[in-house]
Design a protein around this nucleic acid. Structure first.
Lengths: 226, 226
DNA sequence: CATTTTGCTTAACAATTTATTAATCTTGCA
DNA sequence: TGCAAGATTAATAAATTGTTAAGCAAAATG
């Protein structure tokens, strides 16, 4: 949502693989970060908040599964795509990986070309999820394609940020989104904006929509509920 | 999550129990299958792939624990909720059950009404996939993602500190938390607050929740129990 | 190309909610 | 009884959010 170029983190202990893959992904317009072991991967992930994380299963310090497990336990990485790099016949890793929240697998060895096309398809998948599904709650309908919200079938025009913010909150009704999560998702983790910015947008949404659909949880964040 | 109606398999060797429970669950819109012994249960499970499996521990042919063990070894049943029916004080079964992958326990004897509400809560749990960290005790449900506590499905809004304090105590029901532990965890080791601060928060929680779920252990601390 | 409109952000201040303290009761128990 | 630990209450402090208006930049308009 926030940044245009997608960020990818690749963690593998073989420098050659890292280099080849990241070079090819960069050629295709991705912003690539690399990590040489599990702990490093977690560090980078927290710094740049990638859109996609590719983890080798076998790594020093912390293996891929542990990294995945740990990242998934952070709310920031609930929606990040995480995929594993596995050896061809490593069935066990597949099963265990899925248990811990991996989204998919890529089997080694893999050509750069195939890798790029796989990555493209991951992002196609995520984009569909994000945008093509209308969210409907009571008299409120959010149409991602139109960038419009309807209340009792009357269209309400929200500005871009307002719309993204509302959509984000409404993506999981009832769940509280921390102010930080919101900043990361809507503004991007590298953007620094003032304290009151979110509030002002929330206010505008409330104002335009006219009904109370966003609840403040003081000291925590906001949530969408009717 | 393909089908709308949830499928439940109940295995018990007492026909009366089977009938009463399944009748009541059906009234509430569930699709119920029954099995009269362990082997039967495995057969049915493989045929209908239930969303929830309730196993009596003591059954002919194969006991509940063996059934659970076997089902869990099949990948199909990795994500199925499996719960045991146990006698009130059968601690051993509890322990062994958990080892073999049970998700929860229901203690006999149990009223149809309680059974239905338990089953409902299992499905709430599964629906909110990620919010599996919800704590549930009796009529009380703590939803960390929502920052809300429910009592008999009625939401109760706690302030941040109150919520954190209750969550902390409820994370290990029955265990006494020293005042110092609480201070360290909720306030941080470096923060200095007066003696009565905890008390006041405890009071507010008790007041808002309305039932006695926090017990004072004089000279020691507090514990959560129902 | 100038003008207008729209959207985003900020700053200042108001309002509200939450946290803490201090003072005063209760209660259990030696 | 009298003390000690905790409960209760209300007052006050602190933290957080709401509101408004204004400035600026980018986009839209004529």
């Amino acid at each position: 949502m926030a940044p245009e170029t997608k960020k990818i983190l690749i963690a593998d202990d073989e420098p050659d693989i890292l280099e080849i893959i990241s070079y090819n992904l960069q050629l295709h317009g991705y912003s690539v970060f690399t990590a040489k072991d599990g702990e490093h991967a977690i560090k980078i992930a927290n710094e740049v908040h990638p859109d996609l994380i590719i983890l080798d299963i076998m790594m020093p310090k912390k293996n891929g599964i542990e990294v995945c497990k740990q990242l998934r336990s952070q709310t920031d990485f609930q929606d990040t795509i995480i995929v594993f790099l596995t050896a061809l016949n490593d069935e066990l890793s597949h099963v265990r990986g899925l248990e811990f929240g991996a989204d998919d697998f890529i089997t080694k060895p893999i050509s750069p070309k195939v890798m790029v096309s796989k990555v493209n398809s991951f992002f196609r998948r995520i984009n569909k999820q994000d945008s093509s599904r209308a969210i409907e709650m009571g008299d409120l309908r959010i149409e991602p394609e139109e960038y419009v919200v309807y209340y009792k079938d009357q269209p309400i025009n929200l500005a871009k940020k307002e719309f993204e913010l509302l959509s984000y909150l409404a993506s999981k009704p009832g769940r509280v989104f921390l102010r930080n999560e919101i900043l990361n998702k809507i503004w991007g983790n590298d953007v620094i904006v003032g304290d009151r910015t979110i509030d002002v947008h929330i206010r505008k949404i409330r104002q335009k929509i006219g009904i109370d659909c966003i609840t403040t949880v003081k000291g925590v964040g906001y949530k969408f509920e009717l």
